[in-house]
Structures are given as structure tokens and as C-alpha cells.
Design a protein around this nucleic acid. Structure first.
Lengths: 134, 134
DNA sequence: CTGTATCCACAATGATACTG
DNA sequence: CAGTATCATTGTGGATACAG
């Protein structure tokens, strides 16, 4: 059961979601969980072709929040390494739980979607009515 | 440590995030976790003044995914009740874990942000985070 | 009361070019 | 290689009017 002592303050759930709800933050955490990676490595590792701009923004935000540590080697050419902090690693646990849930229930969700789409096919005015790809 | 067997397929984390990453889905799950609620009740219960449009869209998506059950009473005036399904309740645990993490580490994150902002306010960066320049 | 359809504002993302 | 700046595009959310 979820308790909200301060509904006006959005009870803390929003906090975590805002931090992970963007398109790439989770992937950065995931790809950094095995260990340190350089900027370019991170970019290549993340699925979906993240742009330099978005990787920079995402990684900066995570650094600001203390989830990621950024180490600059003032060499030529430049070399920057990223790694999870303690805080970041504590999140990894949670992200994994989320992934596990998603994987475990994906079939059920796919079935539900298919059923919903079938039941609403006659009206045909709902939003994204597409079959899943799982 | 998070394993991704199919990096190209976005390894399942994206799935869960896409489902909860929008602005309101989590709140619907939270407010429904104590029990059944009507449309208007849900709208009033959710912090942040969700519009009819967004509540409808959010609730429809959750229904399609099988997280929420929608019951229509063909009366006048209409009455529609929403409740979590088994699947939805299984998510509740996860959402709570997320909230707990957020609450537990909020001070640390706030401190990190303050430090980051201070270090980047004037353009100067007295970061001790660097290695040798070899 | 519940829900749909339109129009509009803004934030997030992506593509590209340029700099150190 | 790493990062910034700019511009175009998209998606998401909000306000409102209308319908069952």
C-alpha cells in the first residue's frame, strides 16, 4: 500500500520518475552498471542511437543529481569517463526490479492489449491501436 | 548488475518506463491502490489538477495494458469505476519501492544538486574529480 | 457524470555544424 | 574525442467546447 502524507508535495514518487522518466537516463544507468565507460563507449552501448546532445544532457543531469561521477582527463584528445556513484548503484537495484517486472509481465500485457484492441476495433477511434511487437 | 540479452530490443526496461514515465500514470496507480474509485474521485484525488482529457487518456492506456479494470454502470447519470487488476497491484509494490528510494535519497540528491550548481554557477569548476594527465 | 474532439503552448528530442 | 550552440520537429499536456 502506498501512503501519501503530503499529496500536495506529490509524495516523492514524482521525484524518482522525473529522474528516470526521460528517454535515456535509465539506459545510462544500465550501461554504467557493469563499470566505467567513456563518452563514446556509452553512446555506442546505448540502444536507439542517442545523439551527442542528448547523451551530454542526460549524463549532466545524472551527474548533478549525484548518480553519476564524471572524470575528465585533460589530455589531447580529451578523455572523459563516467561511472555510477554509490547513489547510482543503489538505483541500479531498483531499475533491475523494474526490468524484471516488465519482462515477467510482458506477455500478460501484450495479451491485454490485443484483447483491448480487438474489443475496440469496431469503434476504431481510440488512440494508438497497434498490435505489440513482443 | 543488469543484463541485456537483446540490447537492440531495449531489454525490457524501456517497457516499464514507457508505461509509467508519463506525467500521471503513477498517480492513478497510487490513488487506485487503496481501492476502487470513480472517475471524478480519481480526478480530485490526484495532486496537480489533472484535466479530464489526461485522466481519460491515462486511464485508457492503463486499461489497455491490463493494469486497471474499468466498470461502466449504464445509469443516468453515468457512473464509471476504476480499480487495479492483479497485474496493477503487482506494480504497486514496485512503485512503492521507487517512492521509498526517492524519499530516502532526496536529501543526498538535493545536496548534490546544490554542490553542482555552486560549482557551475560562475563558470569556475574547482572539481577535485580528475586523474593524472597521462 | 463521463467522455470525446479541437486547438494551442511548451518541453523534449533529434540533426547538424562548430569549438577546444 | 568530448562538448556546445542552433534550429526544426515531435510528443505531451492543458483549456475549452461539445456530446451521450
Amino acid at each position: 500500500m502506498i501512503e501519501c502524507e503530503t499529496p500536495q508535495d506529490e509524495c516523492g514518487v514524482r521525484d524518482a520518475l522525473d529522474r528516470l522518466g526521460d528517454k535515456w537516463s535509465v539506459y545510462v544507468v544500465v550501461e554504467l552498471s557493469p563499470g566505467t565507460k567513456r563518452f563514446k563507449e556509452l553512446q555506442r552501448a546505448i540502444p536507439g542511437n542517442i545523439s551527442q546532445r542528448m547523451l551530454t544532457l542526460t549524463v549532466r543531469r545524472l551527474e548533478r543529481d549525484g548518480l553519476v561521477k564524471r572524470t575528465v582527463y585533460p589530455t589531447v584528445p580529451p578523455k572523459v569517463e563516467y561511472e555510477l556513484t554509490e547513489l547510482g548503484r543503489s538505483l541500479t537495484h531498483l531499475v533491475k526490479a523494474l526490468a524484471d517486472w516488465s519482462i515477467a509481465h510482458r506477455p500478460a500485457i501484450a495479451a491485454s492489449r490485443a484483447a483491448w484492441d480487438a474489443a475496440h476495433a469496431d469503434g476504431a477511434h481510440a488512440d494508438g491501436a497497434h498490435a505489440d511487437g513482443a
